[in-house]
Amino acid sequence: MDYLARRRQEMLEAMESCRTGSDDLSDRAFAELADALADDGELRVHFQRVQETDAAIKAAFADVPVPPGLAERLSHRLAESTPADPIAIQVVAGPESPTPLRPDSAVRRSKQFSGRRLAIASAAASLAAIVLAPILVAVWMHAHRAPSITAGRAIDEAVDFFNRDNGPLGPLVSQVAPPADFPMSTGIAPLPQVRWRRVEKFLGGPAVAYDLPAMGGRATLYVVNRTVADLPSSPPQSPTLTTGGNSAAAWQSGNLLYVLVVQGDARTYADYLDQSPLT
């Protein structure tokens, strides 16, 4: 499938992923679709028809008659399966609970032990704190003596940040120039509809995030003034980390650290890289 066909399919998929009567279209991943709908009346009409059709199907989905007597049959089965252990229940109830427990309370008897469990847990926690305190202090001191981070940790933190990152959409790069001290990486494919925004704190410092057009999911390139050892000078062809549906990699260009995080697999990640041959 060529690039344009794939992008076309992705926009159709984005359209199909917007729930009727929701504000899904304001999702950052759909920014490109929202722009296209604002610009193109024909597409807008089609989107409206998809939404209206969805509303009809959605209403039909809930229209299922419930068989008569189902509640009674279910209650009978539940009563049959209730643990019948009156001795255990009585012990759990204890002298302070003279009221007989209802049958379904038996399955929750573990909650009755919460006080005893809490006491044991507290004692264990105190002991652990005494044993672990010197170790934790040593680890803390070691961490603060070594301000640099490893490449792996930088990528881990970047993915974690990306998963929580829901900052407002910034302007298009083509309309408002991004800060010159946080330039877009030359290793990224020349894509349309790239937006940028400032990030107050990313890996310990101010940064710029470039939100790339969605190819199935979100993709953001973070740029921060930070040096991390053992990183390549250009984006790796394969992601260094693939986890939780995200793919990510980092590279260093001068004082700037670049981290690309993509929702998708290694193939999706590679789609964001500039594949033009070196000259």
């Binding site: 992705e10 998929e13 984005a14 199909e16 992923s17 729930r19 929701s22 899904d24 999702d27 991943a29 969805d54 199907i57 959605k58 989905f61 809930a62 190819m215 199935g216 999911g217 979100r218 549906g245 929702q263 998708g264 697999d265 999706t268």
Partner: peptide
Amino acid sequence: FYYEDCSYREIAEKLALPIGTVMS
């Protein structure tokens, strides 16, 4: 999507699937 009114993100999260897979 239709019955539970889940967004594509919620579906991906609940089924532990990549978002692109869910959308497709």
